[in-house]
């Protein structure tokens, strides 16, 4: 589905990713764990084309082409979605208008008919209910004044309506209480169809208790140093990352 080869990436003068290789398989849940500053968020930003990240070497192959030079919106339209760790607040941009603009951009890209306001609201009501979100979230400005939980649910709401192929969840569990975590996890699980790929970045196993990860990758010093099954999580929780060296 998505293959990263020898990826080198900088943020400013800092060399963060230093020859990272990773293959994300279709229909699988990949989890990235690693110490602070290892490059987990930089990896997700590099995949979605964040302006902070400069890719200096390597490739990200997706749907048969290298997307390193593709603008962020084109990556999104091709089905790459990232749930932000700290979703930005945009005062004055109505949440419903934003969601409909994004959804219609995707539909247009797929050659499908765009939704009018009434059709859109019908779709939204169903999704809001599944995430236990109030409908007034739609009339508010995008993420403005949202609690941490509301922001994360709004990210999952976007994921549900945009139906991406590759879903990157950057610390989606941070700042969530148990109920919010469950609702978010249910939203994620409802998207699993055997074709979509998930890249879950997390520090803790509590989210993983609700998901069914296929691979655990340890990212350290700008590279994937170890890949194993879900059993690796217990060892990491007990022993930390110090023991992991380049394989």
């Amino acid at each position: 589905m998505l293959t990263i080869k020898n990826l080198h990436a900088n943020i400013g003068d800092n060399k963060i990713l230093q020859g990272l290789d990773l293959t994300l398989e279709a229909g699988k849940v990949h989890v990235i764990m690693g110490p602070n500053g290892a490059g987990k968020s930089t990896l997700s930003k590099a995949i979605v084309g964040h302006y902070d990240v400069e890719v200096t070497e390597g490739s990200i192959d997706y749907k048969g082409k290298d997307i390193v030079k593709l603008p962020a919106e084109e990556r999104a339209l091709e089905g790459i979605f990232m749930s932000f760790q700290n979703p930005t607040e945009i005062p004055g941009v109505n949440n419903a208008y934003f969601l409909r603009t994004a959804l219609n951009a995707k539909l247009k890209h797929e050659g499908k008919e765009e939704l009018n306001a009434a059709e859109f609201l019908r779709v939204m009501r169903e999704k809001l209910s599944s995430l236990e979100m109030k409908t007034d979230m739609l009339s508010r400005s995008l993420n403005e004044g949202f609690s941490g939980g509301e922001k994360k649910r709004n990210e999952i709401l976007q994921m549900l309506i945009l139906k991406p192929d590759v879903i990157i969840l950057d610390e989606i569990d941070s700042g969530l209480d148990i109920d919010a975590l469950k609702a978010v996890a249910e939203g994620i699980n409802s998207m699993q169809d055997g074709k979509r790929t998930f890249l879950v970045i997390t520090h803790y196993r509590r989210l993983l208790d609700y998901l069914t990860p296929d691979y655990i990758h340890v990212l350290k010093n700008g590279k994937i140093l170890k890949t194993a099954g879900v059993e690796l999580v217990d060892k990491l929780e007990e022993e930390g990352y110090d023991w992991i060296k380049a394989e």
């Binding site: 979605v48 084309g49 964040h50 302006y51 603008p71 962020a72 919106e73 999104a76 339209l77 979605f81 990232m82 932000f84 979703p87 930005t88 945009i90 005062p91 004055g92 941009v93 208008y97 934003f98 603009t101 994004a102 951009a105 995707k106 890209h109 400005s141 976007q158 945009l162």
Partner: peptide, 20 residues
């Protein structure tokens, strides 16, 4: 960037922010 990461073109993203 947030708007563009959802598939909204740069022009339309700029417009959304200016309208806001």
């Amino acid at each position: 960037f947030y708007l563009r990461s959802r598939g909204i073109t740069e022009v339309e993203a700029r417009k959304l922010l200016i309208v806001a």
